[in-house]
Amino acid sequence: MNSTELDFERPLIELERHLIQLDAFTEEHPDLDLTEGLAALKQNADSLTKQTFQKLSRWDKVRLARHPQRPQAPLYIDSLLDDPVELRSDKLYGDDRALIGGLAWFDEQPIVYLAQQKGTNLVERQEMNFGYTHPEGYRKARRLMRLANKFNRPLICFVDTPGAHFDLRSEEYGQASAIADNLAEMMQMRVPILVIIIGEGGSGGALAIAVGNRVLMMEYAVYCVAPPEACSGIVWKDKGEHAPEATEGYKPTAPDLLKIGIIDQMIKEPLGGAHRDPEAAVRNVKRAIKKHLNELIDMTEEQLIQQRYERYRNLGLYGEDDNNCP
C-alpha cells in the first residue's frame, strides 16, 4: 500500500486495483465476456467514491489540499500557459524557489503569472522550503506586479503555501513589511488580477499574492487564517492536537468561503480529487480562468481598481447596533 494514500482513499484505491486486474484478465481471455460485470463493478467504484467524497469532513479536505500527489503550480503553468519565461530576481537580494513568476501567454493573451510551489520530491521540497515563502519571494512578486501594471498585462496567481516562512532570517528581512507592501501594491494595480487557490491558502503568506478582482478556489483547497495546527495551539494551547476541531471551527473550505463571499467560484475537481485525474483538473481550471479573464478584460482601469477595492472593503461580519450592543 502506498504510504501517501489517505485513509478514506484506501477502499477506493483497492477497488480500482481489482478493476485493473480484471481488465487485464479479460484481455488475456477474449473468449470470456465479462463486459456487463465489469461495467457494474466500475459503476460501484464510482458511486463508492462519490459517497465517500460527499461525506468528507473539513479536516479531510485539509489533508487532500496537502496531499503529496496533489497537482502543483508547475503542472498548471506547463499545461495552461504558452512560452513561459521565468523571471527569478527580486532586484534586491535573492531568488526564492517557493514563489516563482514570469511572463507567459494564456490563450493568446500575454499575461504575468505568479505561483507558489512546494516540490514533489525531497530535493525539490528542500529547495522550495516546503512551500514556505520568504520575503525575497514576496518582493519578487511585487516586482512582477509592477511589471504587469507597466505593460498592462493581466496577473494570474496560483496560490499554494502552508504560510510565509517564520525563521529568524525571514523576520530580520522584514516578512511582515514585504507582505503588507504587496497588499498595498495589488490594491492599486490597473490590470485584472485573477487568483486561483490550488492547494493550501496559508494565511498572510497566501494573501500576499491573492488580492484579486476574482478569487477562485479548487474544490478541495483550503484558505485559512493560520494552519489548523497553529490555530489549535493558539486557541486550545496544545501542540496541534485539536487541528481537526480548529478546522471545523474556522471553516476554511471552498463551499464555506463561497457562502461568505471570500471566493467567487469553486472549481470542481475530478472524482476523488485533483490528484486522481490531473488532466481533468487542469481542464476545469482552464475553463474557469478563461471565463473570468474574459469578463475582466472588458473592464476599464478605474472599474478594476474600484471593483477590487469594494470586494475587500465589504468583507467582514460584525454587529452594529446601538441597542443590542453588549
Binding site: 497588499l183 498572510g204 484558505y223 487564517v225 471570500i262 467582514g316
Partner: peptide, 26 residues
C-alpha cells in the same frame, strides 16, 4: 495577530485595511 475564531474573514481584514491605507496615501 489575526483572530482565529473569525477564520478567513479575519485574514481578509488585512486586505481591507491595506486597501484603506492605499486610498489614503493616494
Amino acid at each position: 495577530g489575526m483572530r482565529m475564531q473569525e477564520g478567513t474573514l479575519a485574514l481578509m481584514q488585512m486586505a481591507k485595511t491595506a486597501a484603506a491605507c492605499t486610498e489614503y496615501a493616494k
